[in-house]
Nucleic acid binder design. Structure first.
Lengths: 218, 218
DNA sequence: TCAAAAGTGTTAATCCTACACCCATGG
DNA sequence: CCATGGGTGTAGGATTAACACTTTTGA
């Protein structure tokens, strides 16, 4: 006889950029629930924690299984465990958040039950997932200011203009190109590759890459 | 037949101040383990999560049971769940951190298996608790700079000198009294009570209290 | 009257912001 | 040759850090 027990699940808020009329905008993939409770609603990808896998592995695994994505950045966000979160059992839900590269975000699994939504206009989500996404966005904005995580959204080489567009998309406001450039260069988190980006209808920008350093994946 | 399952535990890193030759210093209470594994070692207070209590309740409850303390500030820190954390079962450990008032810290349960240690000189702890405490200290230092949590360590009314000593103890460096005063006053997080602290062998300092506002207990 | 901390004032250095201006390319 | 974003320069304001100096108490 199974007594009332606590179950552990791991889900992930995945962020990626997709173009909306020319500019990148923050998006996230959701999966449609195929069982009760909240059947048919959109929810964060995730699943139960198996005893033999670490929390991080579980996040990475559940993410790959449902969306086919491999994150560039993966970090624990928070653990939610109110007694009634809208489901039947007592579930403790450990939430991670991840960033995937723009080009990777394009080739998500072709599955009618997986779809990308703009972070600003989400449908009503299952459980308390709305609240969770709100936290993740808040954390992303905060970390943008004092870490180099934004690099994880871009391809290996990028211009400072592209990097600025990413920051603008996430922060939701325009940044002065001149000051942004100086701030970024001063931190030493980027290195010139020497190459220039060609094919643009203006002065070709220098390309940079993230300065080599093992990322501290908290 | 019980299959290999995941267990959820909640523990808490509790911070309080105790005087070390005249100045406050960051301390934390630990409990001695009375069973295997790690029998006899010092560890963070905590215990298993019961299905009917929230994570926060579990943290508060386990804390009260083992140390008799009521925290002024309680916040989730991180969830640790590597497959082998040194115990026998697979345990997912949700860690909270708490601040208690100086005067409260004095009257901990008189129990030979509970003792306060200076944060700088801890004994070797059970499991991965050393690492956890390290994280908690780091978070405390960071939050000191942009929140008002330091008030939670002091009594209802305090002088700016006392508040500065708290910051100095936690950050581990001296702060300019004049500049500290101005910074704190500028934030508007403290209010003069009108009273002065008497009995000091120098000019009596004005007393302040934390500006009334519901604390956001993440 | 002296030591010690409270509290105020001042200045120089630094950082941040806004914006002017030249550069190099594709159309 | 022009529109567009890349890239550099710079002046003013705000913030910070260091420290001189006055105030008020108990011993």
């Amino acid at each position: 006889m199974a007594e009332q027990a606590v179950t552990v699940a791991v889900s992930t808020v995945i962020f990626g950029l997709r173009d909306v009329d020319g500019s990148p905008a923050l998006h996230l993939p959701l999966v449609r629930r195929v069982r009760e409770p909240h059947l048919g609603r959109w929810a964060l990808p995730g699943g139960p924690l198996r005893p033999e896998e670490s929390l991080r592995e579980a996040a990475r695994e559940g993410l790959a299984a449902t969306t086919g994505l491999r994150p560039r950045h993966l970090e624990q966000l928070y653990t939610f465990g109110a007694v009634d979160r809208g489901g039947a059992d007592r579930v403790v839900s450990i939430v991670y958040w991840a960033l995937v590269r723009t080009d990777e975000a394009e080739r998500t699994l072709a599955d009618p039950n997986v779809s990308w939504f703009p972070a600003e206009r989400l449908p009503a989500l299952a459980f308390d997932h709305d609240e969770i996404v709100g936290w993740a966005v808040k954390r992303l904005k905060a970390k943008l200011e004092y870490t180099r995580i934004s690099h994880a959204l871009l391809p290996e080489e990028f211009s400072l203009g592209q990097l600025r567009e990413v920051h603008e998309a996430i922060l939701g406001r325009r940044l002065d190109p001149a000051n942004f450039r100086r701030r970024v260069e001063a931190t030493g988190t980027v290195t010139r590759t020497g190459a220039l980006q060609s094919g643009v209808r203006h002065r070709p920008p220098a390309l940079y890459r993230s300065t080599a350093r093992q990322e501290l994946l908290t």
